[in-house]
């Protein structure tokens, strides 16, 4: 089966195209799957995470997955630099300017390894020289929060996929984490014990005070923290899970849509505004006695 990819951007259309591939391949076994990017004029490199997740699942189902190396050279360059194409037999090339954050697959127990990867790949001062320490810390912690969320809620056995790309000319840094787990909708249905659509489930999970956690460890603030920070930073977030698509735009507006076919897990894509000049220092001091 051959799939011809159009332009893949971090938006509804980009995720829809990937969900279409997931749907078409979900019951294939022992088959040949070929991704044709000959006519792909743009590919947001962070979208390697959700595409990689879908193709990984197809490989796990014993299909032979191939990406044709006939594609525009600038796309081949970027996907070779971030080592996405290395998974499909195309050699990696050196990332001279250090703007890529390598495509990687992690096991849920790899939280420490993930932290090292982010520290080494993201926090390179020569890549983002103008950012304050406080902003960099916020970036790093936002990414950790998403990874934690995938570990805690996805119950995935197929791993967690991540990839990032810095666009210096556009002052943006995009990062995506995708998993092939149970998805937000199933978790919310199990918790509320009632049917709910995938887009409603995302909105429910984003509401302050809501969590599907039931054990002895409380939870439920990771996504809210992420949303608050990205709003302040004037960045963007997309959360895609099952058929649900939610986006927070730079101007603070929200978009909720339904995909035609489900994404087989959850993908969280964030766009950081690297030209943010907010101080991120707190105006008032918090003391020990204020906490408990």
């Amino acid at each position: 089966m051959k799939f011809r990819l159009g332009s893949i951007e971090s938006n509804y259309d980009g995720f829809s195209q990937l969900a279409d591939i997931a749907e078409a391949t979900k019951e294939l076994f022992w088959d040949d799957i070929e991704i044709d990017m000959m006519h792909t004029s743009w590919f947001d490199a962070n979208m390697c995470a959700p595409l990689g997740a879908i193709l990984y699942k197809a490989s796990r189902d014993l299909n032979t997955v191939k990406i044709s190396d006939k594609m525009p050279s600038r796309i081949k360059d970027i996907l070779s630099k971030n080592r996405f194409l290395s998974n499909y037999g195309i050699p990696a090339i050196y990332d001279t300017y250090g703007t890529t954050v390598e495509y990687k697959r992690f096991e849920p127990k790899d939280e420490r390894y993930f932290a090292d990867y982010i520290e080494k790949k993201l926090v390179r001062k020569d890549i983002m020289p103008e950012m304050s320490e406080a902003l960099l810390k916020k970036f790093r912690e936002s990414i950790f929060e998403i990874f934690n969320n995938a570990v805690i809620h996805s119950k995935t056995e197929m791993g967690i996929f991540s990839c990032g790309q810095y666009y210096p000319n556009q002052n943006r840094f995009d990062f995506c984490i995708a998993d092939l787990g149970v998805g937000i909708r199933q978790n919310v249905i199990k918790y509320l014990k009632k049917e709910i659509s995938a887009d409603e489930a995302i909105l429910w999970a984003l509401k302050i005070g809501n969590t599907t956690k039931t054990g002895k460890v409380p939870g439920g603030i990771g996504l809210k923290l992420l949303r608050e920070f990205i709003s302040k930073n004037k960045g963007r977030i997309q959360i895609v899970s099952d058929k649900g698509y939610w986006e927070l735009a730079k101007d603070g507006t929200e978009l909720i849509k339904t995909l035609q076919f489900p994404f087989p897990g959850t993908a969280v894509n964030i766009e950081f505004n690297t030209s943010d000049t907010h101080s991120y220092f707190l105006a008032s001091e918090i003391r020990n006695e204020d906490i408990f």
């Binding site: 912690e141 934690n148 805690i152 460890v217 939870g219 923290l225």
Partner: peptide, 12 residues
């Protein structure tokens, strides 16, 4: 760096 997941488990 600290995450809410870490603090939820350690202190929450």
């Amino acid at each position: 760096s600290l995450t809410s997941a870490f603090l939820n488990t350690a202190i929450g």
